[in-house]
Design a protein around this nucleic acid. Sequence first.
DNA 1: CTGAAAGCGCTTACAG
DNA 2: CTGAAAGCGCTTACAG
Lengths: 342, 342
Amino acid sequence: MPTSLDIAQLAGVSQSTVSRALRGDPMVNEKTRDRIRDIARRLDYTVDKNASNLRLQQTRTLALLFFEDPTSDESNINPFFLSMQGSIARVCSERGYDLLVSFQQMSRNWHAEYTGSHKADGLILLGYGDFLDYRHKLDALVQSGTRFVRWGSALPDRLGVSIGSDNPLGGRMVTEHLVAQGRRRIAFLGAPEHSPEVMERYRGYEAALRTAGLEIDPALRIDAITTEQSGHDAVLSLLDRGVAFDAAFGASDLIAIGAMRALADRGLRVPDDVAVVGFDDIAMARSVHPPLTTVVQDTRRAGRLLVEALINLIEGKPVHATRLPTHLIVRRSSVAAGSTAA
Amino acid sequence: MPTSLDIAQLAGVSQSTVSRALRGDPMVNEKTRDRIRDIARRLDYTVDKNASNLRLQQTRTLALLFFEDPTSDESNINPFFLSMQGSIARVCSERGYDLLVSFQQMSRNWHAEYTGSHKADGLILLGYGDFLDYRHKLDALVQSGTRFVRWGSALPDRLGVSIGSDNPLGGRMVTEHLVAQGRRRIAFLGAPEHSPEVMERYRGYEAALRTAGLEIDPALRIDAITTEQSGHDAVLSLLDRGVAFDAAFGASDLIAIGAMRALADRGLRVPDDVAVVGFDDIAMARSVHPPLTTVVQDTRRAGRLLVEALINLIEGKPVHATRLPTHLIVRRSSVAAGSTAA
DNA sequence: CTGAAAGCGCTTACAG
DNA sequence: CTGAAAGCGCTTACAG
């Protein structure tokens, strides 16, 4: 690999001048600069990032950390998070940053591993299992002065900057829609205690039921983590307990899709016997049968905001938590054929 | 951030000794080593990667480059490639490598950008648009001595190391299956000229037809790139041309899923009127209606092989192209209710 | 077993 | 406008 010294020798100037010319320093003579750049191009020269990063004390790299649900054995990343990666990667390259991607366990020391070692200037945190563990890790990150942003519900400032959807509104819209469809016994499939976002969705659900004058029956709430299997199991256990319900609100699309499978397994028709709604609008929501009504989160915008917030943080600019609008997209899983409502 | 010099001062030793102790050099006294490690842990010290990489002339980082189809406007990465990322990331971390991820245009100079600049020790190439452009880029990479592996069909050695599925076999299995279902006019949706993998699948299709004594009708072959839209359009144009067919083999699941939509739009039943088969087994293949018969490629193993081959290349060990076994998974999209065959 | 020193390839304040 | 020099934080050959 050629170095700036090689270029300097060929151009008959000092290595300092090469460095200046290549960085576009206006002080260098235009002719000299052009000559140097020509030679650099000819030799296919690129600045050694390790050397320049070391000198500049930066990395121009962001680390995207996905968290696996510890309870699932596999690389079970919710496709919803994966769909954000495209936009994150695009905005990073737009802003001249590289993106390091890693699937993480909660046990690792993210600060030491990424920012402490100067592999990255900051972290983007996506997805997580149980929030109790996660909270400790966030606290530690704040302690160590690590720059990070995360996708989630906006929590007290000390846990860092978060970008997230308007989950309470989403939960309310889903529930109001189901009520408008004439549903009265709406099951909630999700684990509010283990995730603030799910808690917000649940609060929206409760609020809508209350407004509609419907009972909030604890028997209708059942834990589920974000996997099809878990949604499937949740429905089976409701049925086995003999709990009557005419609708199911899955805290995520994966849960809702698993729920639809379980209903089909037991010979129940969606939406005629049970209307089903999810949350996320992953690609599969459109393609399942019947297509799934769900809450759309703007992953494109989310990715952009995450990256831009993190870069602002790194550059010492002010940053605040942001809540993104959501909207309901009604598909067939929640609208019975004979239904009068849209 | 503490440096090794800070540790040295606290431990009352030289900075060299700290470096040796932390790297586990057996020459340092055990007690000294333990003391140094204790202090390092207490200060939350981590080796500066820029400094150590510069000194060692390596990066311990691999770059995963996804190629977007230039004809599609959006971050339209085939989910099949995304599903490989999980396994790639896992194996990287297992082997102590970091993973840089980027969505690339064909126009960029990957060598200069990643390996030349010492951001990565090697490249993993996944997905691409037109092979003609791609081939030039691969040639250039070989010229520059860049270490890289790619997912694709095994081509002549000068284009680098490739890991890919047994596409000819996959194409044959699909076609034999359709023939066994009594189908005689099997459309092929894909662009063999623009992708060696698709060409291999097409060859398998031709071979199976020939063995079955069926005609190879050029009218049944229609170009499509790997998007639902393109599969959709391909079927519409076949229908509009009045080409009769009782089965469609999509060169990818996305194409096949788009084809199913187009058939539904035109009031044709799958599989009764037209049997449909895809290739890849993306998650959506299971969830579409009817579920899609397809060829399973082992993405887990593929990811592992890609990473391990690249690391071997980097370490100067011998590496060879590998072809992975595939198998057909039969779902309802290809088996009519009254069908006698399995 | 340990330390002093060189050097990886840059960037930039300082001097001219 | 340009060059000589310092220094970013490591690793390791060399000397003891």
